[in-house]
Computed example of a mutant assay.
Amino acid sequence: MENTHMLSLHQLSKRYGPVQALKGVSFDVPAGSVFGVLGPNGSGKTTLLGIVMDVLKADSGTYAWFGQPPHHSLRRRIGTLLETPNFYHYYSAVRNLEIAAAIKQRGHDDIERVLKICGLWARKDSKFSTFSLGMKQRLAIASALLGNPEVLLLDEPTNGLDPAGIAEIRELIRELGRQGTTVIMASHLLDEVEKVCTHVAILKMGTLLTSGHVDEVLASEDMIEVNSADGNKLEQVLNAMPGLRSLRRHNGGFQAVFDNGQTAEQVNRYCFEQGVALNYLALRKKSLEARFIELTN
């Protein structure tokens, strides 16, 4: 591995007339990650994928694959599924992949492997027209995996699928990640990124809001709810507690958020030591939905 980053973006910008599709976007995709580019429709995700695949030209900024400036030979190390491939309805899965391998000029001896990875080996001789939506998308991913690329690039891989198909594709992406393939996928679904990805970059109207490990970026602050017989004394004690970020009244008691993740037990002990006995104590996890809405609104 030449670099621990499969892909690095530095200040990428792209404008279409009056619309600034990308504004100085920079982030790194670690090797072996399942990296989600998350944002509502129109946030610049597809433009970003188009630039790093050399389909579109950036107005300014640079990017590097495998620590190297882009050049044609690197394309062979990247598998892409940016739009639905045109498979022949009356040909079998194997025949369709033979045609795909011929077009790509690689992967002829790889068909059995990719069909097995994508769970389609048992249906290798079935016509494409007999496949469910999820199976059709799995065949598309199998085609992108021909030639054993180090990185797989997917644009909204579950779009248009039924719930069963969505579950199949998500599990396949997780499995590819476990096997060490770096997957970069654009999605507008928070739920998808949360369930599938290890890392995320969140875009809004062409601007990068944040990027990093999913657990850190979507970290929900835990709120601790407390009450006691003497509300005024409790308020004084909490306001004096180290690490308090915010305190607000809620349902006759208080909701406290701490900077360094104090546990409910620590809050309880602190209050008790300051002479306040709590008659109510609860930990409330802030939902990821709330965090995402906060970031994109």
Rank of each mutant, 00 (worst) to 15 (best):
53 M>T: 07
46 T>H: 02
147 G>C: 05
106 R>N: 04
107 G>Y: 00
232 N>H: 13
286 K>S: 14
266 Q>S: 12
264 A>W: 07
224 I>T: 10
186 A>P: 03
82 L>E: 03
124 K>D: 13
139 L>G: 05
265 E>A: 10
288 L>S: 11
179 Q>I: 00
156 E>G: 06
72 H>G: 15
241 M>W: 04
86 N>D: 15
31 A>H: 14
46 T>S: 10
234 L>N: 07
28 D>A: 12
130 T>Y: 02
133 L>K: 08
123 R>N: 12
37 V>Y: 07
294 E>P: 00
257 V>Y: 01
8 S>K: 14
120 L>G: 01
214 V>H: 12
19 V>N: 12
116 K>Y: 04
141 I>G: 06
244 L>G: 02
112 E>Y: 08
225 E>P: 09
209 L>Q: 15
48 L>G: 00
217 V>K: 13
157 P>N: 01
251 N>L: 10
254 F>K: 01
14 K>Q: 13
181 T>E: 03
132 S>C: 09
80 T>K: 00
193 V>Y: 08
126 S>L: 14
216 E>C: 13
186 A>L: 11
206 G>S: 12
194 E>D: 09
200 V>H: 14
140 A>T: 08
78 I>Y: 03
121 W>N: 05
54 D>A: 02
43 S>N: 08
48 L>W: 00
33 S>R: 07
40 P>G: 06
222 D>S: 06
73 S>G: 14
283 L>Y: 10
101 A>W: 05
193 V>P: 04
170 R>Y: 03
276 V>S: 04
163 P>F: 01
63 Y>T: 05
209 L>K: 15
88 Y>T: 03
61 G>E: 04
284 R>H: 15
140 A>I: 10
156 E>K: 08
132 S>H: 11
53 M>V: 01
156 E>H: 09
157 P>F: 01
46 T>I: 06
